[in-house]
């Protein structure tokens, strides 16, 4: 059986394969969790970023927590874009109680624009006082083939 090296493919095949890889790669969601100190305070973030392109335009550099309404957790994260052009991304928070159970439904995805080399702050308030932890999901779902409806 003859094994074909990808370098021997016709140029069109390489372009098409690249387009497919690029389009499926856009589907990956990056995840950010708080890194906690022994006292429970936020001491940084842990990022899982399988989508390197998304990470380059929406990288979480800092996270903060406070309490509002007496007993409800509020989260604020700073997101930096290392890109030289204006970019868009989407994000949403997921909330968990002390047992790790998800609280409420998921927040809706929110779409944001970020300028070149800009750091923006996004925040969210937990849906319930039972919330003790959170995860931030960052996504890049504005696919080019979905750009217009009939």
């Amino acid at each position: 059986m003859k094994i074909t090296s990808p370098f021997s493919l016709p140029p069109m095949a390489i372009i098409l394969l690249g387009a497919i890889v690029a389009s499926t790669g856009c589907n990956l969601t990056n995840t950010v969790r708080p890194k906690r100190a022994p006292d429970g305070a936020v001491a940084g973030v842990v990022q899982t970023a399988p989508n390197w392109w998304l990470d380059s335009k929406a990288n979480v550099v800092e996270a903060r927590e406070s309490v509002v309404n007496g007993d409800t957790k509020k989260v604020q994260v700073s997101i930096y874009s290392d890109q030289l052009q204006q970019q868009r991304f989407s994000y949403r928070f997921e909330w968990f109680d002390k047992s790790g159970m998800r609280i409420g439904g998921m927040d809706s995805w929110k779409s944001l624009m970020i300028l070149p080399k800009q750091t923006i702050v996004v925040d969210a308030t937990a849906p319930s006082p039972q919330v003790s932890d959170w995860i931030l999901q960052i996504s890049d779902t504005n696919y080019p083939w979905n750009s217009s409806a009939p």
């Binding site: 493919l9 069109m12 095949a13 098409l16 394969l17 497919i20």
Partner: peptide, 12 residues
């Protein structure tokens, strides 16, 4: 047509 080209076209 190269088989991989056909496969790529179909997927696209």
């Amino acid at each position: 047509a190269h088989p991989s080209l056909l496969a790529a076209l179909c997927t696209l």
